[in-house]
Amino acid sequence: MADDPLPLTDWVHHDFGVRLTVTEPVDLGADRRALLWRAESADGGRYAVKLSGGGTPAGLIVSAHLAGQGVPGIPAPLPGPDGRAWTVRDGRRLSVLPWVSDDRALGGAMTDAHWRSYGQVLARVHAAEVTDELAGLLPPGGGTHPAVLATLRAVDERLCRHRPGDRLADELARIWSTAAGPVAELTAAVEPLGAELRDRPGRAVVCHGDPHLGNLLLGPAGRIWLIDWDDAVLAPPECDLMFVFGGVLAFAPVTAAQQAAFRVGYGPTEPDPARLAWFLTVRALDDLGDWAGQVLDVARAEGERQQALDIVRGLISPDGLVTLARAALRKLGRPPEAR
Rank of each mutant, 00 (worst) to 15 (best):
R124Y: 06
R124T: 12
R124F: 01
R124L: 09
R124M: 02
R124I: 01
V125G: 01
V125L: 04
V125E: 00
V125P: 00
V125I: 14
V125D: 02
H126M: 05
H126V: 02
H126Q: 04
H126P: 06
A127L: 09
A127F: 07
A127E: 13
A127W: 05
A128G: 07
A128T: 06
A128W: 13
A128I: 08
A128D: 10
A128R: 09
E129M: 13
E129A: 12
V130F: 07
V130L: 13
T131H: 07
T131M: 03
T131P: 03
T131V: 10
T131C: 11
T131N: 08
T131L: 09
D132C: 04
D132I: 02
D132H: 11
E133F: 05
L134E: 01
A135R: 15
A135F: 11
G136Y: 03
G136N: 04
G136T: 03
G136F: 00
G136V: 02
L137P: 03
L137N: 02
L137I: 02
L138Q: 00
L138Y: 01
L138G: 00
L138A: 00
L138I: 02
P139V: 07
P139H: 01
P140N: 08
P140W: 11
P140S: 12
P140L: 12
G141A: 11
G141D: 03
G142F: 12
G142L: 06
G143K: 09
G143N: 03
T144P: 04
T144L: 10
T144Q: 15
H145I: 10
P146V: 09
P146I: 13
A147W: 09
A147M: 07
V148F: 06
V148S: 04
V148C: 05
L149Q: 12
L149W: 12
L149F: 14
A150I: 08
T151G: 14
T151Y: 04
T151W: 02
L152P: 00
L152V: 05
L152I: 14
R153M: 08
A154E: 15
A154Y: 08
A154Q: 15
V155R: 06
V155Q: 01
V155G: 00
V155P: 01
V155L: 07
V155K: 04
D156F: 00
D156Q: 10
D156H: 12
D156Y: 00
E157H: 08
E157F: 00
E157W: 03
E157D: 12
E157C: 04
R158M: 08
R158C: 06
R158E: 14
R158Y: 07
R158S: 15
L159H: 09
L159S: 05
L159V: 05
L159Y: 06
C160V: 11
C160I: 11
C160D: 15
C160A: 14
C160W: 12
